[in-house]
Amino acid sequence: PAVPCVSDGLPKPTNITFLSINMKNVLQWNPPEDLHGAEVTYTVQYFIYGQKKWLSTSGCRNISRTYCDLSAETSDYEHQYYAKVKAIWETNCSKWAETGRFYPFSETQIGPPQVALTTGENSISIVLTAPEKWKRHPKDNPVSMQQIYSNLKYNVSVYNNKSKKMWSQCVTNNTVVLTWLEPNTLYCVHVESFVPGHPRLALPSQKQCVSTWEDQTSALK
């Protein structure tokens, strides 16, 4: 059992929020102010809105880091949650610092799809793999975010490095083939996932650049 500490002996942790991407829900906070050099530890609890008790999480008791992965505890994304953290140093501890009400289904950010590019003489095929929902164990069957948000779409942006022109395409399927491109030209692609009608931050994929092959006729000459 935890050794009782003198409450309110320390300032509270600050800026306590959930960072949620693809339902990986990580609680993060800033250390209490003015405690430089002190070996502060933290304890986290969480609460399911509409239920009765605050619950502890074994992985985040007396930890020294300033984040706690609560993805397992908040995996039922149709529920809403609160979380709180307090700072402990020797026999002193702070009051709890609490989050607002966190609603994974409507607040999680949707990560970009995986993007695979393959080139041809004057074509690029773009294969998109939907972002995956957080999973408890690596061996668990993957759940695509598309299964949760059925109207998930992708915004594919293509930049022609030679003409310096950019254009985009909104797609729902997972394969896009760009044909009749200019040969021997570098094209850069990045993709964002989005759910229409819901104000969410967009997380674009890493920009990837590939060059179309040299024009085969001139190559033969």
Binding site: Y49, G50, Y82
Partner: peptide, 9 residues
Amino acid sequence: ITSVRLLKP
């Protein structure tokens, strides 16, 4: 009153 949810499952 966080222990009560009106629009319950």
